[in-house]
Design a protein around this nucleic acid. Structure first.
Lengths: 227, 227
DNA sequence: ATTTGTAATTATGAATTCATAATGCAGTCA
DNA sequence: TGACTGCATTATGAATTCATAATTACAAAT
């Protein structure tokens, strides 16, 4: 019997932070959506106090914007924000790559290899959903392998801000193939436990991912302008 | 006349976040201090609602810990946290160094040179307070030079967590001299606008700073244990 | 018809109140 | 003497209430 289970009771505001964050990250709450406190209170069945505490936290994470007396609205991921965020994530992943090679156990590396294989399989069958999930899992595992809470926390924060566009984005066939290649190289260096090399690969991988997203967004913008 | 001035009226909770953060960072609120809401409310002359919102934000920044029904306490900067935080800051500063060389104007670089000269002067006269201030200003200017809000925000957040130990720390003569040397090299590369080189120097500089802090903390711990 | 001024409504910022978990103390019993 | 039980106190989580800023609706005037 797990005794700690019964003790841990997350407070309402923690719960709300989590659930609202998920709603935003998974694009259920669209950017620029006004988020009237009243509606959310009714939706979640809580009073305004814990809800407003949650909104303050989400605002500090950059997921919503608070305008005094004008309420909260979900932030839009701009091109500029994307171009600013990815390089920072890239640096964090570079560090994670270096540290993971030092800290991951052989068993953990084997697990990552399994996730990698699953990702490749998803790629072959063009299962985008499974691919994104496996890809996400691999990156998270490599971050966790750094054994650095601070790194992990900030990576998660930054990831939340841009994951929304990853949901929207349809990567091109070319870029998709390239990403798989990059992941293959990463696995190679991970097995060799060549930290600096893995770090470099991960940084580059992220910057390429950034370029793909930027390109996609600019094309989307053009369409909007034209339509 | 500045018209924006009259419009901007920071809400109570923003004000509280700022003031509490300063109190914690500047070590006026010591680690492990219990922070009873009642006392703070009286001190600031506000009700509990905005204060609790502020505490939630500070908790998400890692400056206080919230234990359900047991209130908030100022977090202690552990050795482990220090060792985790500095490498992350180092990566961010590396990126900032690269970008600053691309983005800073000649005038801005001249300004930084002035701050650098002021820092050297403070070093020569062994004015620790002035030195720390100038040092802080230089790093902030290089971060700002990256023209990247996300980078800046996360750097500020991480800085807040460790600045407290910088207040406590008395750097050794040797390390102090070394730090000056590193800053001299940084200025050189900045003038040459050699981004990658400046980035590398800044990363190394931060990691050396980290090592100095860790060494100091371990010695302090020994003293506590022995005493 | 468009604009401007005012009133009514709504939504948010903040204070207060209520409920409950945690703490402290006294008293009891081994 | 020391540990445990139960009540009183305190502090926090959450709900409610109050005050005020912002928005909307509408009427009047140009």
């Amino acid at each position: 019997m797990d005794l700690t289970q019964s003790i841990k009771r997350p407070s309402l505001h923690e719960e709300l932070v989590e659930r609202l964050r998920n709603l935003i990250v998974e694009d259920a709450l669209k950017p620029d959506t006004k988020v009237p406190e009243k509606d959310l209170c009714e939706a979640f069945g809580v009073s305004r106090t814990p809800l407003r505490e949650a909104l303050k936290v989400l605002a500090s994470e950059g997921l919503v914007e608070l305008h005094a007396n004008r309420g909260a609205r979900v932030t839009r991921v701009t091109l500029e924000e994307l171009e600013n965020t990815f390089p920072v994530i890239a640096m964090l992943e570079q560090l994670a790559g270096e540290l993971s090679c030092q800290n991951l156990s052989d068993a953990e590396i084997a697990d990552i290899q399994k996730q990698h294989d699953a990702m490749v399989k998803a790629y072959i069958s063009r299962d985008r959903k499974a691919y994104f999930q496996a890809n996400q899992d691999i990156h998270n595992a490599l971050i966790a392998g750094a054994r650095n809470d601070i790194l992990e926390a900030h990576h998660r924060m930054l990831g939340a801000r841009v994951r929304r566009v990853r949901f929207m984005v349809n990567v091109s066939e070319d870029r998709w193939a390239e990403a798989i290649q990059e992941h293959e190289q990463m696995m190679e260096k991970l097995h060799e436990r060549d930290g600096p090399a893995l770090g470099e690969l991960m940084k580059t991988h992220l910057m390429n991912k950034c370029a793909a997203h930027v390109k996609y967004m600019m094309e989307a913008e053009e369409n909007v302008t034209e339509g």
